[in-house]
């Protein structure tokens, strides 16, 4: 079996080549092999959104993605949207509005929100709610997350 073929893709702007067996899940590859641990494992079955990454810019469940199928793609994790110093506007808004509590779902929400604002820079409240309706948060009741995304869209923290 061609179990350890090399996989090449771009991770957070940098080319990556790594051995990868066919059954490797992207989340496992990121966390275990590439040590990008900002991507969280909440349920492993696509039902929480903690493992969200951007696949060619689109929020995607890394726990339900076969790693081999990202060959040649651009994968962006939470590490990839974080500037070298400071915070991105979405991140700054999450901090300012207390949109994190335990923080475990936060990377997924930040990526979903980042992609939303890129596609739709001025979303309505309903559009924000709809965009995050696949990310579970058990701490905040979503209220402050929605506020933070709305604030980021308006250009303030």
């Amino acid at each position: 079996m061609s179990s350890q073929e090399l996989l090449s893709f771009r991770l957070n702007g940098q080319p990556v080549t790594t051995p990868c067996e066919p059954a490797r899940i992207l989340l496992d590859l990121l966390r275990e092999d590439l040590e990008e641990t900002g991507t969280k494992r909440g349920c492993d079955l696509g039902t929480c959104g903690c493992c969200t990454v951007l696949l060619d810019g689109r929020p995607t469940l890394s726990c339900l993605s076969l790693a081999r199928l990202v060959e040649g793609c651009e994968v962006t994790t939470i590490e990839g949207v974080s500037p070298p110093q400071g915070l991105s506007p979405v991140q700054a808004a999450f901090v300012a509005h207390g949109a994190t509590q335990c923080g475990f779902c936060t990377p997924g929400f930040v990526l979903t929100a980042t992609a939303l604002l890129k596609e739709n820079p001025h979303p309505s409240r309903e559009e924000i709610v709809r965009a995050i309706s696949g990310n579970l948060c058990r701490c905040t009741g979503y209220t402050k997350i929605i506020e933070a995304i709305d604030a980021a869209a308006r250009g303030g923290p």
Binding site: G49, L61, S133
Partner: peptide, 9 residues
């Protein structure tokens, strides 16, 4: 269908 994340794939 499901969630936006599921619909992405």
């Amino acid at each position: 269908v499901a969630t936006p994340l599921v619909r992405a794939s």
